[in-house]
Design a protein around this nucleic acid. Structure first.
Lengths: 199, 199
DNA sequence: TCTTACACTGAATGACCATTCATTCACAGT
DNA sequence: ACTGTGAATGAATGGTCATTCAGTGTAAGA
């Protein structure tokens, strides 16, 4: 029962398809990828894909859902350990860049494919992404309460600036062909975000 | 000579197709847009599109090339008038957000479609986009020379942070359905970028 | 008025690909 | 061994478009 023709369980096979899809989407882009490509990468027949996913779009959704879920839950756990708001922001930056470094294909799909259609962005926006921005905002507001951050700045705007800076680091890193280490950029971003560039 | 069946010149018709394409791409995304949609929007026959462009992809390229060219040349002109590096950065921020506000369809194509494929981003990256980041970097370096910006910060990283912050403002604005004014965000970004968030 | 040039048209073509489904296959239980 | 189950297969289907091109209409010059 709950058996597949070779020795793998259904969950495992699903994961395998997702991994294959991430690889294929990353290298050719969502719209240029054929379901047959994904099947070939996962070493299964074309039709098998449809035993695990409703269709091509469902695969892309699943990739985001799974990644974002992990990302956020692990992030929250990490942050809970930390005392000051500044440390939290620094940790968010580090985690953000670390994760993206760790799975470069997933990073490409996130940076590049996520933005491929407004329809998709809206759907996604209202789910994981907004939640992510919220976590940043909460950390910022906590800092304001503790009087380590300026009171007269809008937390919403500041969280967008912070996220935008990190996001741009990742995009540039991907476009550069990943020739340098991404993680150390977390410090740079923090330095500028905390104290500005004015002498 | 150089006449079209109605009274329009060839250049004008080309522009018309580009405008139509921007509208269509913005509303459905590049890959979901049919050449027939663009032709319909421009009120010409499908085949006519091919008298002015090699194909669908060529249209997208032309949109970026034209927009980026205008954007950069007008930007450079504006900046030449300004004395201090801080003023230049502020003006860049204002122009960036103004332009995006002014043509919302173009903004959507830029924010969303530009990132739709790595292939495309790479091509674009090496052209207009890199040049844009360079302009920001130069302004920053000028500020460092004049001792109004900190010497120990990397100009490359700082220009990315600055651009990333602006870019995120635009993306959020588009996703929000453009319910608020984008331009005032330029001040917010400058405030944080110059002096940081630390109390 | 007639001819020529050519911008324009839009139906036809052919490639492409997501999805389906009749069939095959591997295993568990008997 | 034999049989039932349902996972897996991959060839066939059907729909969707980008692109082409033979033909049409217009206007300028002879």
């Amino acid at each position: 029962m709950a058996r597949t023709i070779n020795g793998k369980g259904a969950v495992e096979r699903r994961e395998e398809i997702l991994r294959a899809a991430i690889k294929v989407f990353a290298s050719k882009g969502y719209f240029n990828s054929k379901v047959a490509d994904i099947a070939a990468q996962a070493k299964i027949a074309d039709g098998t894909v449809y035993l695990y996913f409703k269709g091509k779009e469902h695969i892309l959704h699943s990739i985001f859902d799974r990644a974002m879920e992990r990302f956020i839950s692990e992030g929250k756990e990490e942050l809970a350990k930390l005392g000051s708001a500044e440390k939290k922001l620094r940790r968010i930056a580090e985690l953000h860049l670390e994760r993206m470094s760790a799975d470069k294909n997933l990073a490409i799909v996130f940076q590049v494919q996520l933005r491929a259609s407004i329809k998709f962005m809206r759907e996604f926006s209202s789910a994981g992404f907004a939640q992510y921005l919220e976590i940043i905002r909460e950390a910022f507001e906590e800092g304001q309460k503790m009087k380590v951050f300026k009171k007269d700045l809008s937390p919403v705007v500041c969280s967008k600036i912070f996220f935008g800076a990190l996001d741009e680091m990742v995009t540039n890193w991907i476009l550069s062909g990943r020739k340098y280490e991404l993680r150390p950029m977390a410090d740079e971003v923090m330095k500028v975000f905390m104290h500005g560039v004015a002498a």
